[in-house]
């Protein structure tokens, strides 16, 4: 037993996210059903499942955008929603990228990136701008510094959104269907950025339908259905040999389009 676990301070080998028996109701509707999950530092998790399975809701519970009804979420030793822990502290560690980008349309790309570092982390303007430019380089958009979001393509906007989240130097990145709103030819540029991020060692929780990405990048794939965690395992196994009937049903429907991943078939 790790002595630090007794005192409550997180040790490097402790999971960075602990989801402990989380249940959530929207009125009479149970959208999360006793979910138990732990995420190790540096782990890349992909959540898949039919719509309404609660995967986005679960993600949003991690940074407190949704409140849990029962159970709790622990991020880097902090209990999310605990009266003693301000949500801002949790959110400083957790970056989020949304399906609809949610860039601030009235601000330039630079301003989008520097707003939170200056106002939340207290960085000086020059520091924040330097950081912003560095991140824009990283996502491949250094020249868009002074542009307004409306002038960028969807793929570019999403990459800026990723940079904006990274500007807070988070320990974990949450991706809520980051490419679902993009035209097909723009999906690749965003997934490339995400792949690079994974390679650089970022802990990532990704809700997505991009199976090729999941197979390439994920350490674990989590299948959810009707609010419950149905199955989990390495992507290679999940995609070729799902064990539970509900996972099998979902994956067959989903992967029927893609020959590469039909259950029962040998992995490519």
């Amino acid at each position: 037993m790790n002595p630090d676990a007794v005192s409550g301070a997180p040790a490097p080998s402790d999971p960075i996210v602990l989801i402990q028996g989380v249940t959530k109701f929207f009125g009479p509707l149970k959208v999360l059903d006793d979910v138990v999950l732990s995420v190790a530092r540096g782990e890349r998790l992909v959540l898949i499942g039919p719509s309404g399975s609660g995967k986005s809701t679960l993600l949003r519970c991690v940074n407190g955008l949704e409140e849990v009804s029962l159970g709790r979420v622990v991020v880097d030793g902090m209990v999310v929603g605990d009266p003693g822990t301000p949500l801002a502290k949790v959110r400083a560690e957790v970056g989020m990228v949304f399906q609809h980008f949610n860039l601030f349309p009235h601000k330039t790309v630079l301003a989008n990136l520097t707003l939170a570092p200056m106002r939340v982390l207290g960085l000086a303007r020059s520091e924040a701008e330097g950081l912003a430019r560095e991140l824009l380089e990283r996502v491949g958009l250094p020249e868009k510094v002074g542009e307004y979001p409306a002038r960028l393509s969807g793929g570019q906007q999403q990459r800026v959104a990723i940079a904006r989240a990274l500007a807070m130097r988070p320990k974990i990145m949450l991706f809520d269907e980051p490419t679902s709103s993009l035209d097909p030819e723009l999906v690749g540029e965003v997934l490339d950025v995400m792949r690079q991020l994974a390679e650089d060692g970022m802990t990532m929780l990704v809700v997505t339908h991009e199976m090729a990405f999941a197979e390439d990048v994920a350490d674990r794939v989590i299948v959810m259905d009707r609010g419950a965690l149905v199955e989990e395992g390495p992507p290679q196994r999940i995609f070729t040999d799902p064990r539970t009937p509900r996972a099998r049903a979902f994956l067959t429907r989903l992967l029927a389009r893609s020959e590469r991943h039909r259950p029962g078939r040998e992995p490519a």
């Binding site: 940074n63 407190g64 955008l65 949500l87 801002a88 959110r91 400083a92 957790v94 970056g95 989020m96 949304f98 609809h100 980008f101 949610n102 860039l103 601030f104 601000k107 707003l115 939170a116 106002r119 939340v120 959104a161 904006r164 989240a165 807070m168």
Partner: peptide
């Protein structure tokens, strides 16, 4: 205002007053 804007501001940890004034 799209709800996503408030989500993004919250996810970035912006305090309420800052989110109101800036977003």
């Amino acid at each position: 205002i799209p709800k996503g804007q408030l989500d993004a501001a919250a996810a970035l940890g912006l305090p309420r007053r800052v989110a109101l004034a800036e977003v």
